[in-house]
Computed example of a mutant assay.
Amino acid sequence: MRAREFWVTWKEKARKLKGDIYALYLAYRDPRVPWYAKIFTACLVAYAFSPVDLVPDFIPILGYLDDLIILPLGVTLALKMIPRAVMLECREKAQLALKNKPVNWWAGGVIVVFWLLIAAITVILIKNK
């Protein structure tokens, strides 16, 4: 039962982190946020949404450690730079947006097809060597 509680806690933290990152995206566009916080937050949000990591995810253990360390630390720093009232508003907006977010099956399909093509090309290149 202890392992189950551990995973439930991690899922809650991941969901909160996802909401915070979207709230930070909304906050960096707010005129009440200082310029240095905007720059830092924009870089953090770009890193979070980017498919490119400092250490690629396919590298065992290290690939996910950068996401487990960089993102939470970055969010913590960004939250300290942004005025509390702005973050409260942005968290509310993010919560509403994430609740009502549409599912885009076309975009998901395009991404799956892209990765399947990459895998097929890789297999063909390996066979032809």
Rank of each mutant, 00 (worst) to 15 (best):
R2L: 13
E5T: 12
E5D: 11
W10C: 13
K11V: 13
K13A: 15
A14S: 15
R15G: 12
K18S: 06
K18C: 03
K18W: 04
D20S: 11
D20P: 05
Y22K: 00
Y22W: 08
Y22Q: 00
A23H: 01
A23N: 05
L26W: 03
L26I: 09
A27N: 10
R29N: 14
P31M: 13
V33S: 13
V33I: 14
P34T: 08
W35H: 08
W35L: 15
K38S: 11
K38C: 10
T41A: 05
V45R: 01
A46L: 10
Y47S: 04
Y47F: 13
Y47V: 01
F49M: 06
V52A: 04
V55Y: 01
P56G: 09
I59S: 10
I61C: 13
Y64D: 10
L65F: 09
D66C: 06
D66A: 07
D67S: 06
I69C: 10
L71F: 06
L71W: 03
V75W: 00
L77E: 00
L77I: 10
A78N: 04
K80V: 10
I82T: 01
I82G: 00
P83N: 06
R84Y: 13
R84L: 11
R84D: 12
A85E: 15
L88F: 14
E89N: 15
E89P: 09
R91W: 13
E92R: 14
E92Q: 14
K93E: 12
A94L: 00
Q95W: 08
L96I: 03
A97K: 04
L98D: 03
L98G: 03
P102I: 09
W105K: 11
W105G: 02
W106Q: 10
A107M: 07
A107I: 11
G108S: 08
G109I: 00
G109E: 02
V110M: 08
V110K: 11
V110Y: 08
V110L: 14
I111H: 01
V112K: 00
V112H: 02
W115R: 01
I118R: 02
A119S: 07
A120D: 08
A120H: 11
I121L: 15
T122L: 05
V123Y: 13
I124R: 07
K127A: 12
K129R: 14
